Simulated assay, not measured.
Amino acid sequence: MTVARHYIMHAKEGMDATLETALRAIADAVRPLPGCEGVEMLRDLGNERRFVLIERWADVDAHKAAGAMLDKGLIAPMMAALDGPPDGAYLDYLIR
């Protein structure tokens, strides 16, 4: 059963390009991890500081296991660019 893990993030003022770069690096690192079925990154057309990252996983356990494999050095640049913690959730696909 494929699940989605989504994150909604807001960049600090003037840090949207930095956040975008950090998210691209994270997406590139996540894609080859076992159980990952894809990654999408979107930016809000009405708010250039708002990003959505959607990861598709074989299941929740695959996502959690992959977290232990991810280079933690990739997280620091993202966290430095964020204006508050990301909002995240696991989602079931109803239509695809």
Rank of each mutant, 00 (worst) to 15 (best):
E40M: 01
A65W: 04
M78C: 05
L94Q: 07
P32S: 05
L19E: 13
H6Y: 15
L19I: 13
A66M: 01
D83Y: 08
A22W: 10
L91R: 12
P85C: 01
R24E: 15
T21Y: 02
A81E: 03
G14E: 11
D61F: 10
D28A: 14
A11E: 14
T18G: 15
A62W: 02
C36M: 03
V60N: 07
H6D: 07
K12N: 12
W57K: 03
G46Y: 03
A80G: 01
R5Y: 15
G73M: 06
K64E: 15
V60G: 04
T2W: 11
A27R: 12
M78N: 03
A27M: 04
V30N: 07
Y93W: 08
M69A: 13
I8N: 07
W57H: 06
P32H: 05
P85H: 03
G67C: 09
L74N: 09
G35W: 00
K12H: 14
A11H: 12
R56T: 01
A81Y: 08
T21E: 14
E48N: 03
I54Q: 07
A81S: 11
E55G: 05
G88S: 11
E55W: 01
P86H: 12
A80L: 10
P77Q: 07
R43D: 00
Y7C: 06
A22R: 10
I8L: 13
G84N: 06
G73K: 01
L70N: 06
M15H: 15
K64G: 03
D71I: 09
L19C: 12
A66P: 09
K12W: 11
K64F: 10
L70W: 10
L53Y: 11
M78Y: 05
I26L: 14
V52Q: 03
G84E: 00
L74D: 02
I54A: 00
M1G: 13
A62N: 08
P77F: 06
G46V: 00
Y90W: 13
R31N: 07
V30R: 04
D44A: 04
E55M: 08
I54C: 00
A22E: 11
A66G: 14
H10P: 08
A17Q: 14
D83F: 06
V3S: 06
M9H: 11
P85V: 04
F51R: 00
A29E: 06
T2D: 14
I26P: 02
R5C: 13
D44M: 02
A4K: 15
P34I: 04
G88W: 05
G84V: 03
A66N: 04
A58D: 00
L82S: 06
L42M: 02
P86N: 07
T21K: 14
V52D: 01
P85Q: 10
V52S: 05
G38M: 09
G38L: 03
M9R: 14
L70C: 09
D61M: 11
L23M: 14
A76H: 06
A58G: 05
L70P: 06
M41N: 00
D87M: 10
G14Y: 13
I75E: 07
D16S: 15
D28N: 13
A66L: 04
N47R: 04
R43F: 04
P32M: 08
D44S: 06
E13Y: 10
N47A: 08
P32W: 04
